[in-house]
Computed example of a mutant assay.
Amino acid sequence: MAEHARPKDRSIQTLRGVAVLLMVAGHVIGSSGGRGMNVADDSIWRWFYVALEDIRMPLFTVISGHVYAMRPIRSFADYPSLARGKARRLLIPLVTVGLLLFVLQISVPGTNSRPELNELAWFFVFPFHYGHLWFLQSMFLIFLTVAALDACGVTRTRAGWAIATVSALVVFVAVRVPSSADVFSVNGYFRLLPFFLIGYGLHRYGVEKGRRVAVGVTLLAFLAVYSARTIGTVNEWNLAPRVDRVLELAVGVTGVVSIYSARRLVDWAPLAWVGGFSFGIYLLHVFGSAASRIFARAMGIDADVALFVIGMVAGVGLPIMFQLIFGRWNLVWVGILGEKRRRSDRAASVHV
């Protein structure tokens, strides 16, 4: 999602469409009873949220790894340019969209969370202050890490890539920092780095090509670990944190690899079109979904199905409309979407 490119493979854009719809659906429902639609923890809506929790952002990250692998840097001479490009693409939207979100949360009645004004000093340091935007920080750290591995030559060979990926998988299970030390979403970095490297390897080394048996085994493994994860959630298994992370990781890896390998089966032009706006939808969907929920409830609409449909339509549709209407202006193109400045404000494609 965070990588700016227009891959020739339309199925990758379709995957982006799938991933962004799953992400918006999760945020419309809400991560807890006090967020989103305010559904009860024992409702089918909560189950739907939890059922896809291990797949949503890992799928986005695998796609970003795939796209980066199309044009990886070759040496440290390329590193400053990459760092500047990713700072523009990820950190500028972090600041601008983050500030907009902060202002709206403290000024608009009916929002699910209302930060204190003095929290602004920590707004861009700790991820729990700005909801979904933690992903931008984590991805910035991931790009810097993988680019450094490329510059050093570590990931230029299949063996080096495999060692780096296995190391990231181990860190995923073994390392978490307390929330008080989760500066710049380092926990998100630990969680998503292996998925970026997996996406990198899937493209660069074609590890899924010509291995139908391996793909089938991966799908069966996903069904097995996903079933175990679901049973454990329903029965409230009290697993040790690292055991729980092993299950989470197994579901995420087998799930996203299965989806990636089957991407040509869901290659659909409308989904690919939505996928072309995925970064803007990711950044701005909360404004549309939250505003539509507040308005719907003010109109007396309380049915969960209606709130979900309205939230999805607004969360996906309004950011697309925003990009189509205002994306031609550099103020929006650069300042909100993090794109490279154009020489003029002429109309242009806003796909990401």
Rank of each mutant, 00 (worst) to 15 (best):
M37I: 04
L94N: 11
Y79K: 06
R191W: 00
I55W: 01
A303K: 12
Y226E: 11
D54V: 05
R263W: 00
T155W: 00
T254H: 01
V251K: 02
T233M: 13
N118Y: 09
M57Q: 09
D54K: 13
F279K: 02
A19K: 08
S292G: 10
A347M: 09
A5I: 01
D267K: 03
S261G: 12
I63M: 09
V146Y: 10
A262Q: 01
K340D: 04
R242K: 15
V39E: 10
V50M: 12
A228H: 07
L247G: 11
D267A: 04
G34C: 07
Y205C: 00
I55M: 06
F322T: 10
F76A: 09
I142W: 06
T155F: 00
A77I: 12
G317R: 09
M321G: 14
T165G: 02
S292H: 05
G201F: 01
F322M: 10
L21R: 07
V266H: 00
G65T: 11
I142N: 05
V170Q: 10
H351Q: 10
G30Q: 08
I310K: 03
A25H: 03
L99I: 14
F279Y: 15
H285G: 11
Q137S: 12
R158Y: 10
L100Q: 04
G327C: 04
V286A: 15
V215K: 02
I325W: 04
L249R: 04
E339K: 14
V246H: 07
R56Y: 08
V24L: 06
D267I: 04
A228S: 07
P270A: 05
G311Y: 10
V253T: 07
L283G: 13
H203M: 01
